[in-house]
Write a protein that binds this DNA or RNA. Structure first.
Lengths: 160, 160
DNA sequence: GGCCAAGTTGACGTTTACGTAAACGTTGAC
DNA sequence: GTCAACGTTTACGTAAACGTCAACTTGGCC
């Protein structure tokens, strides 16, 4: 295949990468502003190399697991200094482990909040059953459940 | 006890409530700005009634479970309209249930991120073990684990 | 020539929950 | 008299990750 994505000399426009990874042009330019990407230019237009594409993948992976852009940049910088990559891998491993423990903590916090929420719900349900059973919402609306699942998504990990 | 906190005519200064609930004066004034609290005045100074104290408790409880201040305000507003409180309870129950499903979703997202993280960690560990086993960080630093536990806290639920 | 699509560079707006001065008033202790 | 400790208001700062204009250029196509 002549258009194989992995052919190293292949280049990409901003929109191609946006489509492929479901990002916006604004986001890619923003990453560039922040030093995460440094695509070549053809006149004014950005030209993304195969390496740029890999970096973008790493950026998005970092975001998915909840790293901040500045943390991601640090890791990418190490990736460039390229002392065979070993030191960079060690630092990445450390960051990832830190992030994992932080996420575990977040999960515990959420569990605590859920306990408090369920208690509050139970109290309200009991009192409503006494006073005005007709106002008691049966089960959760399907609508809302669905909407809640369609929003949030991976963004929740980033604390949005 | 003459100073029983539940004595309805008892009043509180801003600092007393701050100490009791570990908030800052700035925060209470901010809640007032946002319409969540409306303490009386003695000259310029704020005087918090027993009812204000209850409202503050509700505010903080709402925050702990991850509601935004504007959501909390909506609930408190309903609390005031006070048609025997039943309608307000029904709305609160609805909000709480919505919040619960959102938190459950967040937990799933976190679990997904944790899976991706653990895979990445495993890959890095294997490759480091091959290339430079000396750089492989043994276990997580005690320091960092402790720090991670002391920060985050309930704030994590709020997405901080 | 004329127009559209897609690219570019600023630069300001958004959101949340306060923190952080700055500048001032009041009260009580010494 | 004056210093500390508490209170007040006004108002700007913060952080993150872009969204959303605005105003312009470039290339292609008819």
């Amino acid at each position: 295949m002549l258009a194989d994505l992995r052919r190293p000399e292949r280049t990409f426009t901003i929109r191609q990468l946006c489509n492929e990874f479901k990002a916006t042009p604004r986001a890619l330019r923003f990453y560039e502003d922040k030093g995460l990407l440094t695509p070549a230019r053809e006149g004014l237009n950005r030209v993304y190399s195969h390496k740029d594409r890999v970096r973008l993948q790493l950026i998005l992976r970092g975001k998915r697991v909840g790293l901040s852009l500045s943390e991601i940049r640090e890791l990418l910088d190490l990736y460039d200094e390229n002392d065979d990559g070993a030191a960079q891998m060690a630092r990445s491993l450390k960051k990832f482990r830190e992030r994992a423990t932080a996420l575990e903590q977040q999960r515990e916090d959420i569990d605590g909040a859920l306990i408090e929420l369920r208690e509050a719900c139970a109290r309200l349900e009991r009192r409503l059953a006494e006073i005005r059973p007709d106002l008691l919402p049966r089960a959760a609306d399907y609508d809302q459940v669905l909407r809640a699942r369609l929003d949030g998504h991976a963004d929740a990990v980033m604390g949005k």
